[in-house]
Nucleic acid binder design. Sequence first.
DNA 1: GTTCGTCTGATTGCTTGTAATTACCCATAA
DNA 2: TTATGGGTAATTACAAGCAATCAGACGAAC
Lengths: 234, 234
Amino acid sequence: MAGHVNSMHDQAAQQLRDLIFGGDLTPGAFVDETRLCEQLAISRTPLREALKVLTAEGLIRHEPRRGCFVNQVTEQDLDEIFPVIALLEGRCAFEATQQASDADIATLKELHHQLEVSAAQGLIPQYYAANYAIHEAIIAMAGNKWLAQVIGDLRKILKLARLQQLNAPGRLSQSLEEHMAIFAALKARDAEGADAAMRIHLTRQREALRLLARQSKSRISAANTEHDKHGVST
Amino acid sequence: MAGHVNSMHDQAAQQLRDLIFGGDLTPGAFVDETRLCEQLAISRTPLREALKVLTAEGLIRHEPRRGCFVNQVTEQDLDEIFPVIALLEGRCAFEATQQASDADIATLKELHHQLEVSAAQGLIPQYYAANYAIHEAIIAMAGNKWLAQVIGDLRKILKLARLQQLNAPGRLSQSLEEHMAIFAALKARDAEGADAAMRIHLTRQREALRLLARQSKSRISAANTEHDKHGVST
DNA sequence: GTTCGTCTGATTGCTTGTAATTACCCATAA
DNA sequence: TTATGGGTAATTACAAGCAATCAGACGAAC
């Protein structure tokens, strides 16, 4: 995405992203420079440069003279980000519908086949992989570099949020339906329809996550009261 | 916008932006690290950290082992960015219409008054200032941090493009009309109308710039042929 | 005359060291 | 017992130095 990956600070930035998205650096965690230096086997300067980049990307928060912390994504952030992504990816679907070649449609068809198979067999990681590939393909087909970049920036934040929550059960079949609707509109060269279907898809995605967050929250508070009974917490 | 401005690399980043937007570092220009070091009276380490930040912002391009260059914005970039901004600021107008208080409306009214006065007297810098303030106000009124950030990122690139081109004559009155239409819809609490009016405003803005670019281009090529006659160029 | 190879100058990128600021801990006093 | 003050330890932020790489220029060979 961002050109050559030669210099050490570029490598360090990518490794840091991997550490964050891999769950080794959890949201809210303190980023220890010296520890990471020996872990990545580099000096502090390139690491600090990489930290600046990730700060600009919004993955890391930097407090002067305090250090760096992995950013946490709140429910309000999600409420704000999802409508924007819906708008932007909707626009991608619109443009993609108008600019897609027959080969592009064929590629999408294959990806949707994988999506169906994964959903039918309940292979969640595989479903997410196909889902991701479809979104990426549609974004690429829109042929707008800046649109893609802005979406990428926001998606990075969403990716951060995914770490804090689990997967919704039964969301798969609903998600699949929405994707097939997007693809149907795209194949029929209905740009407005593809736009609308994409926006619906992402809005529903947010709703599913919100529901999940409530469940998780109540589960946690239930666990806390349970602890309180035994006089463990606080 | 981005928290405290204590550390030197933060200051350096801001000073770099000022240098770029002030025209001291023109698009395409090579960024000489050592020269800037003595100019800003700092060492290379914080300067390089600042350069990484501006690279992430898209203001600067970084070629490995070559150095940094101020990014140039092409006509295609503008063609890609403006529709996205139109979409996003349209959304802001929509949200702002629904969430604005009476005090917000009053503030906007005052700003639009300044806009009218500036246009009537042909005070271009003052008009741009009021124009900028109105856009910022509407974006703020939408109350969506991430929406504002994404728009800010793209507007920085546009600001870069403004350096490469002049102002359109006679655009002022047209721009004013469009702004009054946005404000009218906003005041009437017509969210859809405000959205549409904002999108129209930014689309027209792009058209005005495109026209200007064509004129500028033909003017340059005319100048070149003039030079050719005298056997100066190439 | 053109092209390829080498050399040199300059610039980037990384390592290391030093200073300053902050947080934490403990002691002392109220 | 609690709060406040000072001291210490750790960590960040900046500066300077050194090594690696690239561009440009000059010279030689075809």
